[in-house]
Amino acid sequence: MAMNHLRSLKGIVNVKEAIGIVGRRTFSAGGSKAKKGSKGGAAGDAAKASTLSKEVKSTTVVGANILKDGADPKVLPDSEYPDWLWHLIDKKPPLSELRRKNVETLPYEDLKRFVKLDNRARIKENNSIKAKN
């Protein structure tokens, strides 16, 4: 149906412009501009966040509640969390460093990362070569 409208508009506007108009997302009348004193919005949330005491901030995970009637979860001791959680922030070697190492001596996780990053780099290089031609 949209294509029929585009064909009728072909003589008037550019097709790319028409697709941009058809595919554009719109919002309700009051959705994008918040009025002062209106309910909801970032300004009201900021005021609530600043009134929390330091004790509450250090014992609960503020803002982690996703349930309407629930409460923010309490912070547990480190021993209560799984071991893999603490390794999420570890730095992983970049592709250039992995290329300098001997592939046969790499651990499985590093080898898997090397293959993934090397494939991604080759795809980007091939795409840039094709774009130039």
Rank of each mutant, 00 (worst) to 15 (best):
M1V: 02
A2N: 09
R7Q: 05
S8I: 14
L9N: 11
K10L: 15
K10D: 15
G11R: 05
G11H: 12
I12P: 11
N14S: 07
N14R: 09
N14I: 08
V15N: 09
K16H: 09
G20A: 07
I21C: 14
V22M: 04
R25H: 11
R25F: 07
T26R: 03
T26V: 04
F27T: 02
S28Q: 00
S28L: 02
S28E: 04
A29C: 04
G30Y: 08
G31Y: 06
G31A: 05
K33M: 10
K33Q: 06
K33L: 11
K33C: 08
A34T: 04
K35P: 00
K36M: 15
K36S: 15
S38N: 12
K39W: 06
K39Q: 04
G41N: 07
A43Y: 08
A43F: 11
A46D: 07
A46Y: 02
A46L: 09
A47V: 01
A49D: 07
S50L: 01
S50I: 05
S50D: 10
L52Q: 01
L52Y: 14
S53H: 13
S53M: 15
V56D: 02
K57I: 13
S58D: 15
S58K: 15
T59N: 04
T60V: 09
G63D: 03
G63Q: 04
N65W: 01
N65R: 00
I66W: 14
L67I: 02
L67A: 06
K68Q: 08
K68N: 13
D69P: 03
G70M: 05
A71G: 14
A71I: 11
D72I: 11
K74D: 09
V75A: 15
P77V: 12
P77L: 14
D78A: 10
S79W: 02
E80C: 10
Y81P: 04
P82H: 07
P82V: 07
D83I: 05
W84R: 10
H87Y: 00
L88N: 15
I89R: 08
K91V: 06
P94V: 11
P94Y: 13
L95S: 09
L95K: 07
E97T: 12
L98V: 13
R99M: 06
R99C: 12
R99L: 13
R99P: 08
K101V: 05
K101R: 11
V103C: 04
T105A: 00
T105I: 02
L106I: 08
K112R: 03
R113H: 12
V115E: 13
K116S: 00
R120Y: 02
R122Q: 14
I123V: 10
E125G: 00
N127W: 09
N127G: 13
S128E: 12
I129Q: 14
K130T: 04
A131M: 14
N133W: 01
